[in-house]
Computed example of a mutant assay.
Amino acid sequence: MTHLATSLAALPLFGLIRDGGWTMWLIAALSVITLAVVLWKLWSLWRLGVWGGSHSRAALVLWAQGRPREAMEQVRGRPSARARVAQAAIGTSLDPRFDEAAAREETARVARQALFRSRAGLRALELIATIAPLLGLLGTVLGMIAAFQVLQSSGNQADPSDLAGGIWVALLTTAAGMAVAIPAGVALSWFESIADRLQSDLEDLATRVFVARDAPAAPPARSRLEAAE
């Protein structure tokens, strides 16, 4: 255990965190949490199938062609958000127990659940992107106060190098806070754009299913002989 502590203390990064004080330890913890949230979010979105949609698109084509059973088979049991919403829209449209209002409400319920899952964890990234720079600024202010206290106690015998050393250590926390907040903010913006696109796709998918359901059947095409008559 002692050997591990000695090895960590020899690392430059560990030394910077140690010199930055307790605010640097909090910022380091936020960096670990940010990485964990981003990795979990990528895994969650992959399981949600936000980058897929081939089965739901195929189901829409079959549904528009008047082949509802085949359309249902395309999305039945699929785990992706688009497939689940398409299954809810098509399934309720085929179920005589659901009128149009009830079918739309059930489809909206399934879509809301998928959208809630797509936005899970974003509040944590938003909080980190907000408080990490503030923690860095707090650490800088506390470090500057300590540096000027040393300057005041030293009087005319103050060593400028000691003052400069205290100032750069204090400014280190601001840089660290920004280094954590910027990736968190970028990840937050990216995940929000994915969720917005998913919401748009789900609304479009459900609308197309119900529009095709309510559309009147196309009249049979007349033959050339009938047209000539």
Rank of each mutant, 00 (worst) to 15 (best):
L94N: 10
I167A: 06
D99R: 05
L134Q: 13
I182H: 14
L138V: 08
A101Y: 09
R208P: 01
L125C: 01
P160K: 08
G139I: 15
L142N: 14
V150T: 15
L205Q: 10
A89W: 09
L125E: 00
R112M: 07
I194G: 01
G155W: 01
T173V: 11
L138Y: 03
M178Q: 05
E203G: 04
A102F: 09
T140Y: 06
A103F: 05
D204C: 07
V141F: 10
L198T: 13
V169F: 05
G121K: 07
A111T: 05
A195N: 14
A181T: 03
P133V: 04
I128A: 02
I194Q: 11
P160H: 06
R104I: 05
P160D: 12
L115F: 08
F148L: 02
L137Y: 10
R119T: 11
A164W: 04
A187G: 00
S200C: 04
P183L: 14
Q199C: 10
A179C: 06
D159C: 12
L134P: 12
A111Y: 03
P96E: 08
P183M: 04
S153V: 04
F98M: 14
Q152S: 11
G155Y: 09
L134G: 13
A111W: 03
D201K: 09
F116W: 14
A108E: 12
A101T: 15
E126K: 12
L125S: 03
G139L: 04
A175S: 06
V186N: 07
L138T: 10
L151A: 06
T140E: 05
T107F: 02
V110I: 11
D95P: 02
G155R: 11
A102G: 13
D162M: 13
M144P: 00
A111R: 08
G155K: 12
R123Q: 02
M144E: 00
A158E: 01
T207K: 03
V141E: 07
L94I: 07
F148Y: 06
R119E: 15
S200G: 08
F98I: 02
L171F: 01
P160Y: 02
S161F: 11
V150H: 06
P133Y: 10
A120Q: 03
A114F: 00
I90W: 05
D196W: 06
V169M: 06
G185Y: 11
W190P: 01
I145E: 11
G165E: 09
I131G: 00
L115Y: 08
M144W: 00
T207M: 11
L125Y: 13
S153N: 09
A129C: 00
D204S: 13
A179F: 03
S153Y: 04
F191A: 14
T207E: 01
L171I: 15
I167L: 08
D196T: 09
G91V: 02
L127R: 15
D99N: 05
A103T: 08
A146V: 12
L94F: 10
S189K: 13
R112Q: 08
N156F: 07
E203V: 09
V169A: 00
T140N: 12
E126G: 15
G91H: 09
Q152R: 15
T207R: 03
S153R: 04
G139Q: 07
A158N: 11
L188E: 11
A195H: 11
T173M: 10
A146H: 13
S93P: 12
S193K: 13
S193T: 13
L137A: 00
D201Y: 05
A147P: 02
D196G: 10
T130N: 01
A89R: 09
I90E: 09
V180Q: 00
D159Y: 05
